[in-house]
Simulated scan of single mutants.
Amino acid sequence: MRPALPLTCAASLLLAIALPATAQTSPWTLRTGPARVTLHTETRLSVAGNDVPGAAVAASGSDPLGLELGRRLDEAWTARLAIGLPLPESTLRTAGSLQAMVPPLSGTLGRVQYAPLVLTATWSPGRWGALQPYVGAGINHTRITRTEDGDLSGLTVDHAWGSVLQLGASWALDARWALFADARTVRLKTTARGQLTALGGLPAEAKVRLDPTIVHIGLEYRP
């Protein structure tokens, strides 16, 4: 897999929609700070082609360092590309009726490392003193970079696309530095597949809605 490819494409798109920079003020901003990714899962699980009533998969969240590159398009609009480093990981665990199968299942279905790229356009109504709120929308591409087997052997998880809604605000400290707080909600679905070794290698497929919430706070710098 090539996790750098979607980053390159998204960065190219960001540059393509950008307007020429003014000589007086840089249109670029760089943000960094701690981020919290919380996954809200809904699952439809089938084993050997048969639905398992009440089965669910719980996915753990993560706390990467958030990085965001921004490009002001005009006084109201800004294009933003956000990533998380190191790449987030999530542990997939049994939930719902699957808990009745522990044992023979261990409770850990597997682990996934992924590269989430979030490209949005935000609109601001203007500044009130040092405060500048904004709202936005865009797209998310989550690329699976590594999987680790648990109760599911031969675990594979599909890459996924989703829509994004965004809300945030910055507080200017001076001409170059600002504090910010930002929240994004993502609508995201994927499918995981593997074989349940403890059940004789029966094939299993889980269609999972993840719908992550990403909260990001930190410092903004304008060169």
Rank of each mutant, 00 (worst) to 15 (best):
A82T: 14
V118S: 11
Q99L: 15
A100E: 07
T78N: 11
G136P: 08
P88N: 01
L87T: 11
V135N: 08
P116V: 09
D158I: 12
L81C: 00
L87Q: 06
P125V: 08
P86G: 08
L65S: 10
D158L: 06
R72M: 08
R127L: 00
W123K: 02
A100G: 11
D151Q: 02
W77P: 12
V102E: 06
L131P: 11
E75T: 03
W161L: 10
E89A: 14
A76W: 11
A100F: 00
R127M: 01
A95T: 05
G126H: 01
V118Y: 04
P103S: 05
L131Q: 07
W128A: 14
G126P: 05
G126W: 10
Q132T: 13
R127S: 14
R143H: 15
Y114D: 03
H141I: 09
G150P: 00
S124T: 13
G84D: 03
V112G: 00
A76T: 11
L69E: 05
Y134V: 03
Q113R: 13
L119Y: 09
P88G: 07
V135F: 08
L67T: 07
T108W: 02
S97E: 06
A58W: 02
P104H: 00
S124A: 04
A160K: 12
L69F: 07
H159N: 15
V102S: 05
Q99G: 01
A82M: 15
G70E: 08
G154Y: 03
T91D: 03
R93M: 04
H141K: 03
